[in-house]
Design a protein around this nucleic acid. Structure first.
Lengths: 368, 368
DNA sequence: GCTTCCAAGCGAAACGTTTCGCTATGGCGA
DNA sequence: TCGCCATAGCGAAACGTTTCGCTTGGAAGC
């Protein structure tokens, strides 16, 4: 019984699906009429409509979306290309995007690039053969010379999320990263910090570039000079961030606070601080970025800049559907403000270090 | 310029894609030959192969997957239906599944049911019209009378993840939930707890049922009686869990520890404990479930049962592809062991309460 | 009673592939 | 030299829809 009756394995599974022909036959009408009835594209007598609908239920018909897409020359598929769905920020973005898409009758194809340009290009090829109607894309690379190549290979509407690309003819949705970073660093300065380390992720994408700019802006606004020795770029994961922070902590005149550019980096920095025998926030203050519910239950609860991930995902779909409905005006660039949440990980610097800094710095820090 | 030149808005975007005809014309061969060349289904002279490949590059041809699917009668699409991608456990599962699928040439359609059976059924209908080749499904409901209905409406191979369905003719992949819960509760008992509250999520799905069973098993193994008054089922979110835990804490003989059935619930319980003016683990111990990297940086670091989410996602795809390749043997039910990580959130009960418990309980607890 | 018109329904082409069966070409053995 | 076979390449049908334009029949207008 377990091997003899099964001539072809698949037969039991892939039940022969009913086609529009079967419906037509069952209802005693032509297939054109069934199509017209189901799509409401033509007037059909009430009696016939009922007969068709009955037949549909009877034969268990579900329209073949593949055939529809082929004939109509368009699909109801949206590509969603993200670095990593495991990152809570992108998960929230994806969730909102999927929800908005599905509410409008679209289905989402999920892709994780892992920040790898080769994977990204492979996925783009795949999306092309799948003939997705549009694309929501978080680039692995913001440089114009990179995106220019993509522009000509993508033939459908695109909305960029998180990472923007100057010059690309696409809509984009992102946070006001520079402002978020500026607020976090300003907060640290107001708490009395003068030497503020900056540990950043891959700086080939715009959010990191913007957060770095915000970091500098805050320093400038407080008439503090920007010390490149205090900044580490390109930390791909928390391990890299840990090492970077470790190096900064070994500096003779070590930072009393860290601005970190995302959650992974924040974790690495926190680890480095602890490995160094220091406590947060007693010895070193830290601010995070991205925001997610866990930051507030951490030890200590983390001061972070929160991004409205769900709004970004939702808005991206909104813009994409506008294009799909034919809008051909100038690219729109939507920017949402971040929220800055002060929690336990940022405090005053320890008095003795504040002294040292005051002694060593160019501008003596007023004890606040 | 902004309104007159644009006769049809879409025209600029949806560039007229090259078809196999264009390639054939450019290479000076028939479309049958182009197809044979590209798919390697027939011998083609080396010279011609080169000419065809050149033509492909020249006209920028990408095969129309829609037409291929229609003709071949099968797609390379996999449906992934999960409660909520925002849950780190499901995010990790989805990530692994997508990765495995894409490595084998499949694309993943993402759906979030939000634990809503109506949405689930809507998504199933959608997957059916999209003609997905197979389905990875985390049910909203494990009851046989519910799943029986689904079995007959789904005509493609299915692999259940996380939630299993007794009686359904489908493969499944999940954790050994009962064992994980048993270990966590046993750990609490060994620490000296006698009144252990249980706060659980929706008990209409198998993992929660199994974790409840594990909770009871651990009590029985320690000759502790199961007190239904100490258990709360059906906490859909952390707010519900908070209320449930609050009620338990108001009991005259309150629990000294909580077993929680997932991370959301754990968060709510932790909140309730704090709102009650108690400290974890000094006054109340807590164990979590699901596991995710943030548990270890929480305050306190949480003792949790970790599920191998990535392995589950990976294995699900593995099983699904087996079926797609024709395997028709008995349904396979894969179960992975959990990992139990003891961290800071579980400690001995405070001495005075251990006293009270000893006085009130049926079996005096030996001070360990 | 004839024409005209309209609505309802139908037949067939087309979307871009794959694949089956056919033709043509050339090499080889007898 | 002839016939045969293998092989490269081709033509056309088919997958399940949508849609255009046609037919049909009955009601309305004269």
């Amino acid at each position: 019984m377990t091997g003899c009756t099964e001539i072809r394995g698949n037969e039991g599974w892939a039940a022969e699906m009913a086609t529009i022909r079967d419906v037509a036959r069952a209802a005693g009408v032509s297939i054109a009429t069934v199509s017209a009835t189901l799509n409401g594209t033509k007037n059909v007598s009430e009696e016939l409509r009922k007969r068709v609908l009955d037949a549909v239920g009877h034969v268990g018909y579900a329209p073949n979306g593949i055939a529809q897409s082929l004939k109509r020359g368009t699909t109801r598929l949206l590509g969603l290309i993200l670095p990593d769905i495991t990152n809570p920020y992108f998960a929230a973005l994806a969730r909102a995007a999927e929800s908005a898409a599905s509410a409008r009758g679209y289905t989402v194809l999920l892709c994780n690039t892992d920040e790898d340009a080769a994977k990204e290009s492979e996925y783009l090829r795949l999306m092309k053969t799948q003939r997705v109607a549009g694309l929501i894309l978080a680039l692995t690379e913001s440089a114009p010379e990179y995106t220019a190549g993509l522009v000509e290979m993508i033939a459908v509407p695109v909305v960029l999320v998180d990472r923007v690309a100057p010059g690309a003819p696409w809509d984009s949705v992102a946070s006001l990263n520079a402002d978020g970073a500026r607020r976090a660093v300003t907060h640290l300065i107001e708490r009395g910090h003068r030497r503020i380390g900056g540990v950043f992720g891959r700086d080939s994408v715009s959010p990191i570039q913007e957060r770095l700019a915000g970091y500098r802006t805050a320093l400038e606004a407080a008439s503090l000079s920007f010390d490149p020795g205090l900044v580490r770029l390109g930390c791909r994961d928390s391990e890299a961030a840990r090492k970077a922070a470790q190096a900064l902590l070994n500096l003779p005149d070590r930072p009393t606070a860290f601005f970190t550019s995302n959650n992974q980096v924040m974790l690495g920095v926190l680890q480095a601080v602890r490995n160094h025998g220091l406590a947060c926030p007693a010895d070193v203050s830290i601010t995070g970025f991205d925001g997610l519910s866990w930051a507030e239950v951490m030890n200590p609860p983390m001061t972070t800049v929160e991004q409205p991930a769900a709004m970004i995902g939702d808005q991206a779909v909104e813009l994409l559907l506008r294009r799909l409905e034919g809008a051909a005006d100038e690219p729109r660039h939507v920017r949402f403000p971040t929220e800055f949440l002060v929690r336990g990980s940022s405090a005053k610097p320890p008095p003795r270090l504040a002294q040292v800094v005051a002694g060593a710095g160019r501008r003596p820090a007023k004890p606040s």
